[in-house]
Design a protein around this nucleic acid. Structure first.
Lengths: 217, 217
DNA sequence: TGTTTTTGTGAAACATAGTTCACATATAAA
DNA sequence: TTTATATGTGAACTATGTTTCACAAAAACA
């Protein structure tokens, strides 16, 4: 899924020069001259980023942003304003813009803002991915974390050895958590019934060590 | 809590030279000449690491280890064996030793093994700490992760703005998760009712970015 | 002022996670 | 073979997390 950018500006010269810069830098880009048309276009293909001028005939950027965010809350919005005042910036952010570009701006300022906001989008999409739920809830249990670290040091262990190593009397409890780890493919069971970390499991322990080092700073 | 090491060996010369090396390197160290006495000593103060010779009059290391691990599963054990054979090493690890030091060993080999196993202990204690439970279970929910990342980018937001930004219709749902984030002190509420990340919350987003970058490699 | 929006609480319903127990099969040891 | 240990399953129970709904005080707005 490549990023798709829409430029909304009634000033044809500015609009075309922005599009040119973006396309030259490899961004898939469309444009239109009013907020009304933009709303129709986004319905056809949801963009990753919208660059919109504040001052336009008809619906201005300030009115456009809430409408857009309402239906597509993840879309990033950069607002272009005629003059750089604090009031302008505050108003833009308040309306729901993610970034703010006062005219006149340089080619590089545009590119920096575009790249930054696409990065943020990607980050938020990764974090928001439901796949992360499983990963975190799997780590949200002391016994499972201990099993992971234990298997990390002793490459290969039998069921009762793990149980005893953790000092847990009820082996079915350990079994329960081992099953979870297995179903999340962090731990696997060999032909000979011994348990080992999967490659993903090893990665998890690696993340854990990063986290615990950072948390205990 | 400084690390405490117990050296268990019937050979007085070897025992005292090990203790000397350890103390010279700043480790708090005790020693005794039999497994039986060692079991009494650990009951008084639980050590971080036990260095035990395999061949001793009375109870040998192989019998000693399961007894020790049963009551103190977290204690790290380095076993010293007379001859370096694969069978010896396998037997030691099978008995529950965490590391294996064949005689004769050099001063540096001893120190490397000691440091490595104390590092592992520290790591496992950090991972096993119940405090990590809260952190992970707090992250084990998509809405809470999204709130964190949202607040990370927009420094300060009001309640309904967060709700709308996430595209969630029922505001009480967002309220529920905000409360969890507040009680975990990842998010705080200003005088003016706006929500912001706490320093800990910022750290969390930082960990999240580390994790998501690594997971999506 | 009355009206709407914002911000919030608490109960009920529902969902998921975790523990414990009773039991069963397989494997190893005596 | 008998006995013990290792490994595992499923049901009942408990705890915790999440959603939904009805309602309400506070703040902003008209």
């Amino acid at each position: 899924m490549t990023s798709n950018i829409i430029v909304v500006d009634d000033d044809q010269d500015l609009r075309e020069s922005i599009v040119e810069v973006l396309i030259d830098n490899g961004f898939r880009t469309m444009s239109c001259e009013s907020a009304e048309i933009a709303l129709q276009k986004v319905a056809i293909e949801i963009p990753s980023l919208v660059i919109v001028d504040n001052m336009m005939p008809g619906m201005g950027g300030m009115a456009f942003i809430p409408l857009l965010k309402k239906d597509y809350p993840s879309v990033k919005i950069i607002m272009i304003t005629a003059f750089s005042t604090i009031d302008n910036a505050v108003a833009a952010m308040k309306a729901g813009a993610d970034d703010y570009l006062p005219k006149p701006f340089k080619r590089d300022e545009l590119l920096v803002a575009v790249r930054l906001n696409l990065e943020r989008l990607k980050f938020e999409q990764q974090i928001g991915a439901p796949g992360m739920d499983e990963a975190f809830s799997c780590l949200a249990n002391e016994i499972r974390r201990k099993i992971l670290t234990t298997l990390f040091h002793k490459k290969e262990m039998r069921f009762m050895d793990i149980t005893r190593h953790l000092g847990i009397s009820d082996h079915t409890k350990v079994n329960f958590h081992l099953k979870k780890l297995k179903s999340n493919t962090l731990v696997a069971q060999n032909r000979e019934k011994t348990y080992t970390l999967t490659p993903q499991g090893e990665k998890m322990v690696d993340y854990l060590s990063v986290l615990s080092q950072r948390i205990s700073d």
